[in-house]
């Protein structure tokens, strides 16, 4: 564990709490992509199957359980409790275009050809693109509630912080590098660059998040 990892994980935790707060206080899931949230559940479930096989630490275990449980709860809120506030007609990204290629990539690139390891690879590839339905929705509507942009910023910060974490680990753990996680992580962070630009130049200056027409 290093400071970048810890801040990254806390940022991830914060993003989920911000999203829950947004849904509960506005009593609405307007502006949130159900597809992205469903992809995150898939990511967490396929990656964290290792809670049954590898014990790392109480911290690690608790975070994994929290990410699975909280994201499932968000799906419940969107599909049941606040269902009328979710508009599927603007959440139209075709997730099969993400699931298929990620499954193929996982079959091609993995560390061991076992069910657990191939699913782990799949989850890494899928996480890198899971935000696309959400960003696509943002692009379509052209604007977002400020709290939704804070959610996205915290999520993006989590990914961005994993990069210095890997650099730190490379130098402190005798040249270790995880090529699958690093490649997917760089792609994932790159997807946020456009969003970050608008977030820093508009939202943090007190303006509304609006994309140029």
């Amino acid at each position: 564990m290093n400071i970048f990892r810890l801040l990254g994980d806390l940022s991830h935790l914060a993003s989920i709490l911000i999203l829950l707060h947004k849904i509960q206080t506005t009593r609405s899931c307007r502006g949130i992509s159900f597809k992205t949230q469903a992809l995150y559940v898939t990511v967490f479930v396929t990656r964290y199957l290792d809670i049954f096989t590898d014990w790392v630490s109480l911290y690690n275990f608790t975070m994994k359980i929290f990410f699975i449980a909280s994201t499932c709860y968000i799906l419940y809120l969107m599909k049941m409790k606040y269902r009328p506030t979710h508009d599927p007609s603007i959440d139209t990204f075709r997730v099969e275009y993400l699931l298929g290629p990620c499954a193929l990539l996982a079959l091609l690139f993995h560390y061991r050809f076992t069910v657990l390891e191939v699913l782990w690879s799949f989850s890494i590839f899928l996480e890198s693109v899971a935000i696309l339905p959400q960003l696509f929705m943002l692009q379509r509507t052209g604007e977002a509630e400020t709290i939704t942009t804070h959610y996205l910023a915290a999520l993006g910060a989590y990914r961005a912080l994993y990069i210095p974490n890997w650099i730190y680990r490379y130098f402190t753990e005798s040249g270790q590098i995880d090529p699958i996680a690093v490649t997917a992580g760089l792609v994932q962070t790159a997807l946020y660059l456009d969003f970050f630009y608008v977030y820093f130049t508009k939202v943090l200056q007190g303006q509304k998040f609006e994309l140029p027409a």
Binding site: H12, V56, W120, Q176, I177, D178
Partner: peptide, 10 residues
């Protein structure tokens, strides 16, 4: 290249 234990990261 050595790979770090990836179960450690979230």
């Amino acid at each position: 290249i050595q790979q770090p234990d990836h179960h450690d990261e979230l």
